[in-house]
């Protein structure tokens, strides 16, 4: 479900939350932010998609961190258990907790943003703020092409199966299948891109100069104030963290 906020408002909110959480570096805050993002996602009707994407990223990362810092943290002093070279230390566990929750919060907040924002709105909003049209094009075009690719790959696979292609179980056989499927895919995409480039140039895409936009976005003074405030707050948080933690030469 697309959000009713101006896309820059949700972008600012997500970006600033992620940066402030990183700057604060407090795991209770990180957990709170992650929970809030998850609840908002459920409320916006994208809970399942956001959580699925987050789990795919965070579970391997979390386990990796737990294994890495939970068992091996040479800097740790408070040893809780030890098996040979592996030492479970309180410092290591707290490091893993801090790092894991911080990343978890940022991932959930940013996924909440990307799964609720309307990509065309976002591109239009960024273009209106002076983002080069090329960036908007690459962003929007990639987001349209990606879902279409599943269908295209399925069509290629079907066409090749109809020619009698049987993918075996061995590694070599599967590698060969990758090549057979990749060649028509790459060739088709590159050829399409060639024609599309001609079409875009004919439709004045490369022309320098001012542009206008058909799509109009709703913005409000309240949202503008909120964005300015969020950016200021974030800047303050970052500055504070940089000043307090600036490494002093020994």
């Amino acid at each position: 479900m697309p959000s009713t906020l101006h896309p820059l408002t949700s972008l600012t909110a997500a970006g600033c939350t992620a940066v402030i959480t990183t700057a604060a570096g407090l795991w209770p805050l990180s957990v709170a932010v992650a929970l809030a993002a998850a609840l908002l996602a459920v409320g916006a009707g994208v809970g399942r998609r956001v959580l699925a994407a987050a789990v795919a990223v965070l579970v391997p990362l979390g386990l990796s961190l737990l294994m890495l810092h939970g068992l091996f943290f040479p800097e740790g002093r408070t040893v809780l258990a030890a098996w040979g070279p592996a030492r479970v230390t309180a410092e290591g566990l707290s490091f893993a907790l801090e790092a894991g929750t911080r990343t978890g919060a940022c991932v959930l907040v940013l996924l909440l943003f990307s799964f609720t924002v309307s990509a065309p709105d976002l591109v239009a909003a960024l273009a209106a703020r002076g983002l080069p049209p090329q960036v908007g094009f690459v962003l929007a075009s990639a987001l349209t092409l990606l879902p279409a690719m599943t269908g295209r790959l399925a069509a290629i696979r079907a066409a090749q199966e109809a020619r009698g292609l049987v993918v075996g179980r061995g590694l070599l056989s599967r590698l060969a299948a990758v090549r057979l499927q990749a060649v028509p895919l790459v060739l088709g995409l590159v050829e399409d891109a060639g024609v599309r480039a001609q079409a875009l140039e004919a439709r004045s895409f490369g022309t320098p100069g001012p542009r206008t936009s058909y799509r109009q976005l709703q913005d409000s003074p309240g949202q503008r104030v909120f964005r300015a405030a969020a950016v200021l707050l974030t800047a303050a948080a970052v500055a504070l963290r940089l000043i307090t933690a600036w490494p002093v030469a020994p």
Binding site: Q134, V138, S141, M149, V178, Q181, A182, L189, L200
Partner: peptide, 29 residues
């Protein structure tokens, strides 16, 4: 970006798609 002609620019989303799709195909091996 400003130095890139339109034909190259149009290929960039294609590259991204290939990064993802070919990555997945290779993952299946």
């Amino acid at each position: 970006l400003p130095t890139l002609p339109t034909p190259t620019l149009v290929l960039m989303p294609v590259a991204l798609v290939l990064n993802v799709v070919l990555g997945q195909l290779m993952g299946a091996t």
